[in-house]
Design a protein around this nucleic acid. Structure first.
Lengths: 166, 166
DNA sequence: TAAAACTTTCAGTAAGTATTGAAAGTTTTG
DNA sequence: CAAAACTTTCAATACTTACTGAAAGTTTTA
């Protein structure tokens, strides 16, 4: 298999994987493209590689910057903006986790907690609040576990990209 | 807040949360409805509660059974099928994890592994395969962590529902 | 065994989500 | 400061995904 070919497959794979987990497919593809690019890419580069519109490229790049997975750079003598991805996959995982927690888990937990304020007393209400408690505990544990995992700062993630490009 | 009201909110909440993670919203709502139901429900019950069609109710119930989150039951003298949800949230988490791993993580890992067969030698190819390796290691670790978490069999999940309904 | 009771399927359609592209906005240059 | 170079926005549209409902299939009953 050729490198170019493998890279294209990776872009597809990452896009599909992302969309299975509620991440915009194109955004994941842009991410994959930048992850596998040694050089910074311009909006036009990305438009060309993925055959998407300028608007689409722009939106997804900005979103990736909100997630802190992509940075803007520029080169003297060139007016265009260029983009680079964070290459340390451990960092990448941390940032995705952080963002999804902030966007999805925290609001869920807040809402679940409010649901426990049922007026009624008795077995039916207790069953309900009991189940909500169970979910809260479960999510709490998962959260704790991910925290622990992500705090293993001294990790084995000094792969080829990292060694050569940072 | 009234119990009935809280329950409806929970159904919405669970539906939205599911869809943020790539799970069909209606399927998550059906799941939530059954999770918060002390009695087994019929297809008609579910159609009414969620205002969905028979086809939709049927499809989602069957899919929930594939995920092992819902069981079929029946009552003597009634020809209809009734459905109950697994109420042990720890079990629920285990089964969802198992299923998503089987459907999404395993195929991803297989495909990633294939991508490492790049013909070219040299720094570019090494960078690429290095990054693929990093992803594999990362996913592997997460997998391991979830395994560990899920194996804590002696867990604290003996909430109200579980105590009373099992 | 035929009618009734219930479940499943799936083509057509509706709803939701993502993309385009052109216009408006911004920054840089000479 | 006006034209050029580039970025951003967003209404219209395309695409994807999910749902409906009626017909076909299955099981039960009498």
């Amino acid at each position: 298999m050729e490198l170019k070919e493998a890279r294209q497959e990776f872009v597809q794979l990452w896009g599909n994987f992302g969309s299975q987990w509620g991440i915009n497919k194109t955004m994941a593809q842009v991410h994959a493209l930048l992850l596998t690019s040694e050089d910074a890419l311009s909006t036009d580069d990305i438009m060309e590689h993925l055959a998407i519109s300028r608007g689409g490229a722009n939106m997804n790049l900005r979103e990736l910057m909100v997630w802190n997975l992509v940075y803007k750079t520029s080169f003297p003598g060139d007016r265009k903006e260029f983009f680079v991805a964070e290459k340390d996959m451990w960092e990448v995982a941390k940032r995705i986790t952080r963002e999804r927690k902030r966007r999805e888990i925290e609001p869920l937990m807040l809402h679940l907690n409010r649901l426990k304020n049922v007026e009624e007393k008795g077995v039916h209400a207790d069953n309900f609040t009991g189940m909500v408690n169970d979910i809260e505990r479960l999510v709490g544990r998962m959260d704790k576990a991910s925290e622990t995992l992500m705090k293993m700062e001294e990790n084995a993630f000094f792969g080829a990209f990292l060694r050569l490009l940072k």
